[in-house]
């Protein structure tokens, strides 16, 4: 059977005083930074950064295209027309768009790195064309 450890009274009193002191300190600090509008500024900055990370991808993001991505995924994240990459890269595979870029290059004896670069260029070209129009 476990023995119950007795907690000393002075320890409890010191602990309570510390908690009260910290609570008062936190409330005062919160009011101070609220007056300076720091919280709202940080909220806005955070929302902006999250928004940038989750916003639609554009021409500058074409470098993100990687060999593990499927054509369908690339179409989806860049909002490309479904047949755009198929036509631009002359893809004849019946599995399109549910095939990864790397796997397609491998099965069609293409240089994987060069094919990924070609896909990146195709994506960038799409945005260049649509912007020009």
């Amino acid at each position: 059977m476990k023995e119950k450890k007795e907690v000393s009274k002075p320890f409890v009193i010191v602990l309570l005083i510390t908690i009260v002191f910290l609570a008062v300190f936190c409330v005062r600090e919160y009011r101070r930074i609220s007056r300076l509008d720091l919280i709202n500024a940080y909220k806005e900055r955070f929302a902006q950064e999250v928004g940038e990370h989750r916003g639609p991808l554009g021409a500058k993001d074409a470098v993100l295209v990687a060999s593990w991505m499927t054509f369908g995924y690339v179409n989806m994240i860049f909002k490309l027309p479904p047949e755009y990459l198929q036509n631009d890269l002359a893809i004849s595979d019946g599995g399109y768009p549910n095939v990864s870029i790397g796997h397609y290059a491998k099965t069609h004896a293409l240089d994987q790195k060069l094919f990924v670069v070609a896909a990146q260029k195709a994506v960038a070209a799409y945005f260049a064309t649509t912007t020009a129009q």
Binding site: A66, S67, W68, M69, T70, N98, S100, G102, H103
Partner: peptide, 11 residues
């Protein structure tokens, strides 16, 4: 190694 699993998840 990781790329293989990512393609698998996308598919």
């Amino acid at each position: 190694f990781v790329s293989t699993f990512l393609s698998f998840v996308l598919l």
